[in-house]
């Protein structure tokens, strides 16, 4: 994930800003792992394998099947 995305992404639930925590960057400065946390509701969205997962929590969880 490129850090410039922070200017346009938001929490899918309440549309408030997200706070970025970086766990890993690659040699091109792309963010490979980390989290995005809603500054309003506190929901945490993971960045996995370089792609932010901004699915609302009810779609993110794997179904039991």
């Amino acid at each position: 994930m490129n850090e410039d995305l922070l200017d346009i992404i938001c929490c899918p639930l309440d549309k408030h800003d997200l706070e970025l925590d970086i766990e890993e960057r690659d040699e091109d400065d792309e963010i490979i792992a980390g989290t995005l946390t809603c500054t309003e509701c506190g929901e945490v969205y993971p960045i996995e394998d370089g792609i932010p997962n901004l699915l609302p929590p009810d779609m993110r969880e794997e179904s039991p099947a």
């Binding site: 346009i8 938001c10 899918p12 091109d28 792309e30 969205y45 901004l54 609302p56 779609m59």
Partner: peptide, 23 residues
């Protein structure tokens, strides 16, 4: 990601009914 150039594409996983994008 395999097909597109990272200099211009920004990939996002999200729900079309609840977009994680600013107005």
């Amino acid at each position: 990601r395999e097909k597109l150039d990272p200099t211009w594409v920004r990939l996002l996983q999200g729900d079309a009914a609840r977009l994680p994008l600013a107005d």
